[in-house]
Design a protein around this nucleic acid. Structure first.
Lengths: 236, 236
DNA sequence: CGATGCGTTGATAACTTTCAAATTTAGTGG
DNA sequence: CCACTAAATTTGAAAGTTATCAACGCATCG
């Protein structure tokens, strides 16, 4: 589909990248014992830009890197044998993706909007975590959180379309805004493939939630939560 | 439902437990640097017996232990707010369960048959893995495998009833037998709650698979795979 | 302005659940 | 060991939910 890739790599050796979160980075590189995984990734990684729909990595490619979203959004997905696409997850600013436990990626990843991504060699992280227990601990915790996230999604996938959409909106509300207005970075098709529904069902469900005054949908990509407790009740 | 618990604890300090897999255990306790997680668990753990349907741990209880199935089967599950039960997974002989990344269990666990379970204090494992990198590595890999298992289940849950049941049978075939005859340790209700279906749908699907000569169901708990490639095709 | 992509809406079909009942299996006590 | 009761499984009919197919509206972009 959108196989075209456009990558601009910034210099990889401690680049003067747009580092928003590393006030201690300079100190840290002299003694990495007390830095966070986050800081280390900024030091070791290279920032890359991907246009909307560009592939970041493909299923079955070697999994040599770990990724962190700097800005924009990313989806991971898998194409099933019947041609359907299952979205594994959405990753937004600050999220880490590409965690794998095999040499090959089991999912593909694409930018859902123009995105900047920090790319870190897995081997560097392995080396670092072997001499820094707290970094190893952070990586372990990260995996644990990912596991939890996936388990929660299983609970979601056995529910009705309305429950799935309601859960999705509440999840996105937490992740992309503190407020009740959600600016969705992804298309209806992305949402449908994430929730295991069709775009028609997603669309109809949103309309019905709007009809029962739980939400407003002023434009397709903007959703306002009007009645969180109603959504929470649907959530189960 | 089956809240009754009956536990018989064997002596916890290096018990002469029915250790099938620790030929090197005696050597190992003098130098744990080259032992496996498996061996260490046998050394540090206590074997406990649970009758069918007994609770092993409950949701929201402190997660102080890690568990390994010695014999029999275990299910983890969660009761949803609408009363339905979602089975998180089945654990059979040799499988490790109870992996959590919070202080509290997020799932409950019950024996699906009379079961023997090796119980190991999480704090002991933490201590061990902090001084033994290869054990830490094993624990990490274990988590990774669990993550993969859960991700695969997401792919399963978006498919049709027939695909889910076919996948389930193939999975069980790999896990409980090398042959084509599967002796299911769990009930139809367990299967239904695992696959996100009703028992009626599971039953009907099995009947239809039998009708189309993909399987035989001589008794409810015994299933014979007659046509693996057909099942694999459904699998997607 | 027409093409194109995305989202919504409608009608119908397919699938799964629900409710009810029949049938088989398992467990218990005589 | 058999009979009986309870539990589990299967089957049937009807209802409910979601998918599919088709058409329409609405933006954006050349």
């Amino acid at each position: 589909m959108h196989a075209q890739i456009a990558i601009q790599t910034e210099p990889a050796h401690r680049p003067a990248m747009p580092s928003r979160k590393t006030p201690y980075a300079v100190d840290a590189r002299h003694d990495d014992a007390h830095t966070t995984l986050d800081q280390q990734m900024q030091l070791m990684g290279a920032a890359m830009s991907f246009p909307r729909n560009a592939e970041i990595f493909g299923e079955n490619e070697p999994a040599d890197y770990l990724y962190k979203v700097i800005s924009g959004g990313v989806r991971t997905y898998k194409i099933l044998s019947d041609g359907r696409r299952q979205v594994g997850g959405f990753y937004l600013s600050g999220d880490i993706f590409g965690l794998e436990f095999t040499d090959q990626h089991t999912l593909s990843a694409e930018a859902i909007t123009d995105a900047k991504v920090l790319v870190v060699k897995r081997s560097s992280l392995r080396a670092l975590s072997s001499r820094n227990a707290s970094i190893a601990q952070e990586l372990f915790a990260l995996t644990g959180r990912e596991l939890r996230r996936v388990q929660d999604r299983i609970l979601l996938l056995v529910k009705s379309a309305q429950e799935r959409v309601a859960s999705f909106l509440l999840e996105m509300s937490e992740r992309v805004s503190g407020s009740n207005t959600i600016e969705l970075p992804m298309s209806r098709q992305d949402i449908a493939d994430y929730l295991g529904l069709t775009i028609e069902t997603v669309s109809r469900t949103l309309t019905s939630l709007e009809t029962c005054a739980a939400i407003d949908v002023p434009t397709a990509r903007r959703i306002i939560l009007r009645n969180r407790s109603a959504l929470n009740r649907m959530n189960g």
